[in-house]
């Protein structure tokens, strides 16, 4: 259908990079989301405010701007941290790392709210019961809260992951050679913008469909054994 003028391989390489960044952003974002939700539900005021500031900032700033700020703006900060760790050298983020950090930060902020809602949906009686059994706070979190909360959180997280996949295209502006950037390189050589942007659009659509299917299966799997489930 498409004549990609021999740039098919490059697009595939770009797709690989897109998936790698998305996966990295997802892992970082899930960790940040769990930490954020725990902090927001914590009774320690400073923790609450820290998490609240984080989510407010990330939910109010355009992702494009976050990508640019992380890429250009964190070198000074990182070098200072590295110095504290005993490094004398200069430290900076590659476009790849900057992309993962920026997307992870954005995902984490929204995931904080998803996790918070899910944790709050667990009946207080269960926590009290666990406490009465003599479980510690960490154990309650791992054994009671988390196994139930993630099921509630799953649909929300799936939607966030779809957003994350699409946002990987923004990292092309700092030079990471993911799908979008590879398309632009192909266009510079072939002067066929429609062909390559359309091809890229179809690939993103395909990823979205796969994520949606995976989400559906994961939700069904998570709901197994629950009342009302069909499997």
């Amino acid at each position: 259908m498409f004549d990609l003028h021999g740039f098919g391989d490059q697009l595939l390489l770009g797709l690989g990079m897109t998936l790698k960044v998305a996966a990295g952003g997802l892992v970082l974002g899930l960790v940040l989301g769990l930490l954020g939700a725990t902090a927001k539900l914590s009774r320690a005021k400073p923790l609450y405010w820290l998490a609240a500031t984080y989510t407010t900032l990330m939910r109010g700033l355009p992702e494009l701007l976050v990508v640019l700020i992380i890429y250009f703006g964190t070198a000074g900060l990182l070098t200072r941290i590295a110095g504290w760790l005993g490094h004398d050298g200069y430290v900076e983020l590659s476009p790849y790392a900057a992309g993962i950090v920026a997307l992870g930060l954005a995902f984490g902020a929204y995931a904080t709210e998803v996790f918070r809602g899910a944790i709050q949906a667990i009946p207080a009686g269960q926590i009290e019961a666990a406490r009465a059994c003599g479980m510690g706070r960490l154990r309650i979190f791992l054994r009671i809260t988390l196994p139930q909360a993630w099921r509630v959180a799953l649909p929300g997280l799936g939607n966030l992951f779809q957003v994350l996949v699409k946002d990987t295209s923004l990292i092309s502006v700092i030079g990471l050679e993911e799908l979008m950037r590879k398309s632009q390189i192909a266009i510079a050589n072939t002067k066929e913008p429609f062909t390559f942007y359309f091809a890229a659009a179809l690939v993103y659509l395909a990823i979205t469909v796969i994520v949606m299917l995976g989400q559906h299966r994961a939700e069904r799997w998570a709901a197994r054994g629950q009342p009302g489930s069909t499997t």
Partner: peptide, 10 residues
């Protein structure tokens, strides 16, 4: 299902 950036460039 597609990024806004792609839509805009397309």
């Amino acid at each position: 299902g597609t990024p806004l950036l792609v839509q805009l460039f397309l």
